[in-house]
C-alpha cells in the first residue's frame, strides 16, 4: 500500500533501528554467564548460589508480571503455582524419577493444568473478588501440601539425591547455574516477545478497556485464561527449579505472604515493564541479603521502601529507565 509511506506515523511504528538499549539484555546475560567464572577470584563463591536463586525467583516474578502488568489481573495466589511445580518435583522423585528435565517438564505441565482449572473459576470474578478467589485457591493448595504426610507434611521434604541433568552432569561444578540462567533468559525473551505479539496487544487491550475489547469481538475470557495458564506454567517451572536449588520443598513456599511478596517485587520493579520482574526481584532479594548481614531486623526497611515506592514511584523502578528504552 503506497499511502503507508506518506502518512504521518508515530516513531517506531515502522522499521526499528537497533539501539544501544536493545543490546542491554545481551550485556546483562553475558555478565551473568561469566559470574561463576569470575566470582572465585574475588572470593564471592557464596554468591553464585544467591544469584542462582535470584534468577529462579525472576522467572516466577516475570510470569506474575505477565498477568499482573500486561493483563491487569491482580492475583494474590501466584505462589500456589510455584508450590505446585515444586511438589511435582517431589512427587517425581518419590516415584523414582531421576531426570531433572523430566521432573521439571512434568512440573510445567501439572502447574499449567492447575492454573487452567483455577483460572477458569477465578476469571469469572472481578477486582477484589478475583484477588480473594486466587488467594483462596492458593490457601487450599497450601493446606493440601501441609496434609500430604507422604511428602513430609508441615516439615517439608528433603531431596537427598539431586536430580540428574543428563549429559550435562559433571561438565562443571556450576552447570546448574547456567541451566537456570538459560531458562531465565528464555522466559525473559519469550515474555518480551509475547508482549509485542498479537496476543500481548490483545491482553493489554483487555487490561485497559475490557468492555470495549469484548465489543470489538475479542474472546476476552479465553485470552485471559490462556495468559493465566501460561503464567501458572512458568511459575511452576520456577517452583521446580527452586526444589532443585534447595533440594528441599515445604508448604511455606505457598504461604500467602509468598504470593504477596511476589506481587510486591513486581510492583517495585514496574508492572507491565519487561524489566519490572527482574529489577524488582534483584532489588528486593539483594536488599534483604545485605540487610541480613547487619541486622536481624531486615523486614522493616523493606516495608518502608515498599510504602515509599507506592507513594513516590507508583509505576515502579523500571520506569526510571524508560526514557532510554523506548523500544516497547
Amino acid at each position: 500500500m503506497s499511502s503507508v509511506a506518506t502518512l504521518p506515523l508515530p516513531a517506531g511504528a515502522g522499521a526499528r533501528p537497533r539501539s544501544a538499549a536493545s543490546l542491554l539484555p545481551w550485556v546483562v546475560l553475558a555478565v551473568l554467564a561469566a559470574f561463576p567464572l569470575i566470582a572465585p577470584a574475588f572470593g564471592l563463591e557464596y554468591y553464585i548460589g544467591f544469584v542462582r536463586r535470584l534468577l529462579i525467583v525472576m522467572i516466577a516474578a516475570t510470569s506474575l508480571n505477565f498477568i499482573l502488568g500486561y493483563g491487569g489481573m491482580v492475583a494474590l495466589g501466584h505462589a500456589g503455582f510455584v508450590g505446585v511445580g515444586a511438589y511435582t518435583v517431589v512427587a517425581m522423585v518419590e516415584a523414582g524419577v531421576g531426570s531433572a528435565w523430566a521432573a521439571w517438564g512434568m512440573a510445567i505441565v501439572i502447574s499449567a493444568v492447575f492454573a487452567a482449572a483455577i483460572g477458569a473459576v477465578s476469571l469469572r470474578a472481578r477486582g477484589v473478588y478475583f484477588l480473594m478467589i486466587t488467594l483462596a485457591f492458593a490457601q487450599m493448595l497450601y493446606y493440601l501440601a501441609v496434609s500430604l504426610r507422604t511428602y513430609g507434611g508441615d516439615d517439608g521434604y528433603g531431596i537427598y539425591t539431586p536430580l540428574s541433568l543428563g549429559g550435562l552432569d559433571g561438565l562443571h561444578a556450576d552447570i546448574f547455574y547456567w541451566v537456570v540462567l538459560a531458562l531465565a533468559a528464555l522466559v525473559f525473551a519469550f515474555s518480551s516477545r509475547v508482549a509485542v505479539s498479537r496476543f500481548g496487544h490483545a491482553l493489554m487491550g483487555i487490561r485497559d478497556n475490557e468492555t470495549r475489547m469484548a465489543a470489538m469481538g475479542y474472546p476476552v475470557y479465553r485470552i485471559k485464561l490462556v495468559a493465566f495458564t501460561g503464567a501458572g506454567a512458568v511459575a511452576g517451572l520456577a517452583g521446580a527449579l527452586l526444589a532443585s536449588h534447595n533440594n528441599f520443598v515445604s508448604p511455606s513456599l505457598m504461604h500467602w505472604t509468598e504470593s504477596a511478596t511476589l506481587l510486591v517485587m513486581v510492583a517495585i520493579g514496574g508492572m507491565g515493564k519487561r524489566w519490572g520482574g527482574p529489577l524488582g526481584v534483584a532489588i528486593w532479594l539483594t536488599l534483604a541479603e545485605v540487610l541480613k548481614l547487619y541486622t536481624e531486623y531486615w523486614h522493616w526497611p523493606i516495608g518502608l521502601m515498599l510504602i515509599l515506592v507506592v507513594f513516590f514511584a507508583p509505576k515502579g523502578v523500571a520506569t526510571l529507565f524508560e526514557r532510554k528504552e523506548k523500544t516497547q
Binding site: 494474590l76 510492583a267 522493616w300 507506592v310
Partner: peptide
C-alpha cells in the same frame, strides 16, 4: 499511610499496607 491510599487502586493499598505489616512485625520483634 492509609489516608493517602483512599484514592488509589486496590493494588496500591495491598502493597502499602503489606509494607506496614513488615514494619509492625519487626517492631514487635
Amino acid at each position: 499511610v492509609v489516608r493517602r491510599l483512599y484514592s488509589r487502586d486496590h493494588l496500591a493499598q495491598v502493597l502499602a499496607t503489606f509494607g506496614v505489616i513488615l514494619i509492625a512485625d519487626d517492631l514487635v520483634k
